[in-house]
Simulated assay, not measured.
Amino acid sequence: MLFTGYDNDCIRVNQQPYNSSLCIHAGRLTAPWGPERLRDITVESLDIFMDKEPEILIIGTGRTTAFPEPDALQRLSERHIGFECMDSRSAARTYNILLAEGRNVSAAMLLPGSR
């Protein structure tokens, strides 16, 4: 699965538009993922990534680069899951590059227009 486009209210995966947050993990796409804003990303919302742990989780944080609550990121660190937080447009591009390199990568994406 590749990100194939985005605008403020939509993310496209394999040309299919999604108008909600989404995640791609272990070959499956989940939409809506749950969190719609940065403050909604919690330890519980990241539990989906604890089964079949990825090497790295790309977290698209909406319009700008920001970081979820420290508790949520701490959970990833404790499980030895690398993570990168960046604006959702950059996150989509980075995910595609890492996937093309054959990396075990997952993505958690807020809509690009989210704050």
Score class of each variant (00 low, 15 high):
residue 92 A to M: 08
residue 75 R to C: 07
residue 42 T to S: 15
residue 102 G to R: 02
residue 87 D to I: 02
residue 87 D to S: 04
residue 56 I to H: 09
residue 61 T to M: 02
residue 75 R to K: 10
residue 76 L to I: 09
residue 85 C to V: 06
residue 79 R to E: 14
residue 106 S to Q: 01
residue 82 G to V: 04
residue 55 E to M: 14
residue 93 R to P: 01
residue 95 Y to D: 05
residue 90 S to E: 10
residue 109 M to E: 08
residue 110 L to C: 07
residue 81 I to K: 00
residue 93 R to N: 11
residue 56 I to S: 11
residue 106 S to V: 05
residue 100 A to N: 13
residue 47 D to R: 15
residue 73 L to H: 03
residue 69 E to D: 10
residue 83 F to T: 04
residue 49 F to H: 04
residue 52 K to T: 12
residue 67 F to N: 13
residue 72 A to F: 02
residue 74 Q to V: 07
residue 107 A to W: 03
residue 62 G to E: 03
residue 44 E to C: 03
residue 42 T to W: 13
residue 64 T to S: 13
residue 91 A to L: 12
residue 73 L to P: 05
residue 85 C to G: 13
residue 105 V to M: 03
residue 56 I to T: 15
residue 106 S to Y: 04
residue 93 R to G: 11
residue 44 E to D: 14
residue 113 G to P: 12
residue 54 P to K: 09
residue 71 D to K: 08
residue 83 F to Y: 15
residue 87 D to H: 07
residue 78 E to H: 02
residue 103 R to P: 00
residue 107 A to K: 04
residue 109 M to V: 02
residue 68 P to C: 08
residue 91 A to P: 14
residue 114 S to G: 12
residue 109 M to H: 10
residue 79 R to I: 00
residue 52 K to D: 15
residue 93 R to V: 08
residue 45 S to I: 00
residue 52 K to C: 15
residue 85 C to Y: 00
residue 70 P to T: 05
residue 45 S to N: 01
residue 104 N to A: 00
residue 111 L to P: 14
residue 73 L to W: 06
residue 69 E to A: 10
residue 82 G to M: 06
residue 72 A to Y: 01
residue 63 R to L: 14
residue 95 Y to P: 04
residue 82 G to S: 11
residue 56 I to C: 15
residue 60 G to W: 00
residue 86 M to H: 08
residue 52 K to A: 15
residue 50 M to T: 15
residue 83 F to C: 07
residue 75 R to F: 00
residue 107 A to I: 06
residue 75 R to Y: 02
residue 82 G to I: 04
residue 112 P to M: 07
residue 83 F to A: 04
residue 113 G to D: 12
residue 82 G to N: 13
residue 66 A to E: 08
residue 111 L to E: 14
residue 55 E to P: 02
residue 55 E to K: 15
residue 72 A to L: 09
residue 97 I to D: 02
residue 54 P to L: 11
residue 88 S to D: 10
residue 104 N to D: 05
residue 98 L to K: 05
residue 54 P to A: 11
residue 99 L to N: 09
residue 80 H to C: 12
residue 113 G to Y: 08
residue 67 F to E: 08
residue 93 R to E: 05
residue 63 R to W: 11
residue 58 I to L: 14
residue 76 L to T: 04
residue 84 E to N: 10
residue 100 A to C: 13
residue 107 A to N: 01
residue 55 E to I: 15
residue 60 G to M: 04
residue 47 D to A: 09
residue 103 R to E: 04
residue 112 P to K: 06
residue 80 H to D: 03
residue 57 L to Q: 11
residue 69 E to M: 09
residue 67 F to P: 10
residue 60 G to F: 03
residue 106 S to W: 01
residue 86 M to F: 12
residue 113 G to S: 14
residue 96 N to Y: 05
residue 91 A to S: 14
residue 102 G to H: 02
residue 72 A to R: 05
residue 80 H to S: 11
